[in-house]
Simulated assay, not measured.
Amino acid sequence: MVLAAVVATSVIVVEGGRRLLAGRLSERWPGAGRAARRCTAPAFAFAAVVGASAAMPYRALPDGPDDAVRHLVRIAAIGVTTWLVLRIAYALTDPPLARLMRIEGERNRRARRARTQMMLLRRIASVVIVIVALGAALFTFPGVRAVGAGLLASAGVAGLVVGIAARPTLGNLLAGLQLAFSDALRLDDVVVVQGQWGRVEELTLSYVVVWLWDDRRLILPVSYFTEQPFENWTRHSSRVIGSVELHVDWSVPLDELRTELYSMLQDHPLWDRREWVLQAVDVLPNGLVQLRALMSAADSASAWDLRCDVREHLIAHIRASYPEALPRFRTGPDPAADREPADGRPADGGPSPGGESADDSVPAGGAWAAPGRDGPPRAEPLRRA
């Protein structure tokens, strides 16, 4: 009867605190209500176990069950205490993490760095708390205490064995700390890894989840980012410069094309009005000119959309205004075909100079050879690619 009364009293006290936090205090501090809801279950469990441990009539129990019940209650107390401490730690760190997620603009990079470090430290603290709780629970067994004393006597050998066995785990843990505090990788960073473009969705103690552009997830060990090269497009700033390359004919008017590009960018909402240029960067051996247009955008996603819009606009403008500047492949007559043999007859077996063509369908002068008589044409008219 006393046991039930003590447990009920403990639960009622916890319920009163929960109502206070979720009621009046949550109106002034919204985070108090969320913390109360997050810690409700472990708080009730903690109150029940601690109340039962304090009011348990151990003397009324026989010697054998007395020890077993006492041991069981002690382990339960360690478990619910660990559960409550973890929930309190998460409840205290959730509000600053939520505020950091809402920061945009120039402060976004520093906010993502702080969020990455806070989440990594929270995970490390959680692992340490759980390990300590498991050790405390195991040391309640007399046999484990004896083994622990032996291990402490040979701590050097045990540490060496554990270090060798847990080398990958410890390596990933140290790699995660290095990434978080060296500012090399943060949550929501835009990266290119193994030729894949994506954003860092999750960074844990053992692996990194990269959310790819096509909604796939690339999962890599943390140590990969300290041992292998990767591209980070948002390490210092989210602004990037996009490029569009076109191959056009030499006859394209570059000045007019620059004017059209600038006019299009001024009306485009994704251009940040920072940088732009249109240049002829190369002359190709097939008679074409390689043009490259550069334009800046606020982030990589905007730069991709802006590049696609600029490419489509330039293609449509060239087709509509300068069709003669579209890519063409030029072919010329075979120089050997213009040389006449010693007898004065044309090389293609046609009529003598001054005569008429043997075939009315072939113009005099041999601009091209009819298929079936002398093989494929030696010269073709201009054709579009």
Rank of each mutant, 00 (worst) to 15 (best):
P285A: 07
N286T: 06
N286W: 03
V289R: 12
L291F: 12
R292H: 01
R292D: 02
A293S: 12
A293Q: 09
L294C: 06
L294F: 14
A297P: 07
A298I: 00
A298Q: 15
A298S: 15
D299A: 06
S300T: 11
S300Y: 15
S300K: 11
A301R: 15
S302Y: 02
A303P: 08
A303H: 04
W304C: 09
D305Q: 15
D305T: 10
D305Y: 05
L306A: 08
L306C: 08
R307I: 00
R307W: 01
C308N: 14
D309Y: 09
D309N: 09
D309W: 08
D309V: 07
D309L: 08
V310P: 09
V310R: 03
E312D: 15
L314K: 00
I315W: 06
A316H: 10
H317F: 12
H317C: 03
I318K: 07
R319M: 07
A320K: 00
P323Y: 05
E324R: 10
A325I: 00
L326F: 04
P327L: 05
P327E: 09
P327Q: 03
P327W: 04
R330F: 13
R330N: 08
G332W: 03
G332F: 12
G332Q: 08
G332L: 13
G332A: 11
G332T: 09
P333K: 06
D334T: 01
D334E: 13
D334S: 13
P335Q: 07
D338K: 07
D338R: 08
R339K: 10
E340N: 04
P341V: 00
P341A: 13
A342S: 11
D343R: 04
D343L: 01
R345M: 13
A347Y: 03
A347H: 09
D348C: 13
G350C: 13
S352Q: 11
S352C: 01
S352D: 11
P353T: 00
G354W: 02
G354Q: 02
G354M: 03
G355R: 08
G355E: 14
